[in-house]
């Protein structure tokens, strides 16, 4: 597997990592990559639960972000 190449900008750096990780997923056992993915996703959901929003607050945030798009 090729080494992760640093990017010149944040955007390029992110894209390099996306491609690096995709290659890892492509070439590694499902259990291997998904255990790592699970730590990331479960952690983020857990964090969201610790700072709960009411449904009104959540929908307001979504409405504002849609307007910005």
């Amino acid at each position: 597997m090729e080494k992760l190449k640093p990017g010149k900008t944040n955007k390029e750096d992110r894209m390099h990592f996306v491609e690096y990780w995709a290659e890892y997923v492509r070439t590694h056992d499902d259990h291997d990559w998904s255990k790592q993915q699970k730590i990331l996703i479960d952690g983020q959901l857990d964090h969201a639960r610790q700072t709960p929003l009411t449904r009104e607050q959540y929908l307001e945030i979504k409405a504002v972000s849609k307007k910005k798009q």
Binding site: R26, H28, D29, D30, H31, S34, K38, I41
Partner: peptide
């Protein structure tokens, strides 16, 4: 037997043996 890569088993079906996360 323990090495399983995500793959198409036919034209319209992907077999995925991932450890499922909360999402």
């Amino acid at each position: 037997i323990s090495f399983a890569l995500m793959h198409f088993i036919d034209r319209t079906t992907i077999r995925l043996d991932k450890v499922l996360n909360e999402l």
